[in-house]
Design a binder for these strands. Structure first.
Length: 343
DNA sequence: AATCCGGGGAA
DNA sequence: TTCCCAGGATT
């Protein structure tokens, strides 16, 4: 029996019930695929439900404010996905009359949709034989076929796409794609794969040669930048504070945070620095909230963060009622502080 | 071809 | 700690 037949058979008796599998309309599939980029199903599931509930159609999403979309996305990370999601919803409504492109190349033109997502949507919704290649596919194919080409190289990307394309079930490409990913996610796992009772045990090259744990091959290691953040938590007598929008490129674009003083090292900020930050405001006192900086790890940055609580009589124009801060999208580390501090 | 972009769960 | 997750955009 062929690889493809074995895989489809395995899928039919092992697939999980997931909400987006109950439908084939491009809006739901698109939404689920964007949410699931670099995100485990268990983590993305709640967000999918919330988005479908809040924005049932692409028209509802297009009508929304970006700030509200980011608020619903809060905590999921990679926020450019949310900004592009909103941007593309508007684009589909305004220039495609609310109708999604119905093939791979048309989908590829949309912001936030690359080869993987275009393949997923076109295969599931339109039965177009486009093979998806995600982390699961790299792992399964590299093991079963014994491929040592690094998956994070341009040659590897081409090689695995070509192989998956050769294997795809052209009669049911969407089922094949989901089967391959499901098999990688639940059976051919990175750690403790179920090799002892596997439908490919008789032909798997990695299993026969005992290379399973060496595959897939991934080269290089990501360099991590250290940064030192000092957040100024202003608190006025009339229960207001200040949150600012991050508008520059980089992490957390268009999310809100307390006024930030970034330093080159772990040296502490001074009262004078705080005053210089707000020339028009009379600061009464500044006390550190966490003496020991908390470490917040991102994929390319390690942030050492200290919160400083600054008391003042009034905040003027920029003052935001503390009762309203939970309406704004914030990085999870800011959210955690707000919950813990409880003003 | 490299680098950037989050947060969380598992071992 | 380290790895990696239904990747894509930018440089």
């Amino acid at each position: 029996m062929s690889f493809t037949s074995k895989l489809i058979d395995w899928y039919q008796s092992n697939k999980r019930e997931l909400p987006w599998r109950a439908r084939k309309d491009p809006y739901a599939i698109w939404l689920s695929e964007i949410i699931l980029q670099q995100t485990r199903i268990e983590q993305g599931l709640k967000y999918y439900e919330a988005f479908i509930e809040t924005y049932p159609t692409v028209f509802d999403l297009a009508k929304a404010e970006e700030e509200d979309v980011l608020k619903l996305w809060q905590g999921l990370g990679y926020y450019s996905r949310a900004r592009n999601l909103h941007h593309t919803a508007i684009s589909i409504v305004e220039t495609h009359k609310g109708i999604f492109p119905e093939n791979h190349s048309g989908l590829m033109k949309l912001k936030g949709i690359g080869d993987y997502t275009a393949s997923a949507i076109s295969s599931i919704c339109y039965n177009e034989p486009q093979a998806v290649v995600d982390g699961n596919v790299y792992r399964v194919l590299s093991r079963v076929f014994g491929i040592f080409t690094p998956i994070n190289s341009s040659q590897g990307a081409k090689e695995f796409k070509t192989l998956a394309q050769k294997l795809i079930d052209t009669k049911q490409p969407g089922e094949f794609n989901q089967a391959l990913m499901e098999f990688g996610a639940t059976h051919c796992k990175p750690q403790n794969p179920g090799c002892e009772h596997c439908v490919f045990s008789s032909t798997c090259v990695a299993l026969k040669k005992e290379f399973v744990m060496q595959l897939p091959v991934k080269t290089g290691k990501t360099k991590v930048r250290k940064r030192y953040f000092n957040y100024l938590v202003l608190v006025s007598d009339d229960e207001k504070t200040i949150l600012e929008k991050r508008t520059e490129k980089g992490i957390w674009k268009n999310l809100y945070q307390f006024p930030l003083i970034e330093k080159e090292n772990s040296s502490k900020i001074t009262f004078e620095e705080v005053e210089k930050c707000f020339p028009e405001i009379e600061i009464d006192s500044v006390t550190v909230h966490n003496e020991i900086p908390l470490t917040h790890k991102l994929s390319h940055q390690h942030l050492q963060i200290q919160f400083w609580v600054a008391s003042t009589a009034a905040l003027g124009e920029k003052g935001l009622p503390i009762s309203k801060i939970n309406e704004l999208p914030v990085p999870i580390v800011i959210h955690n502080f707000i919950v813990d501090f409880s003003f």
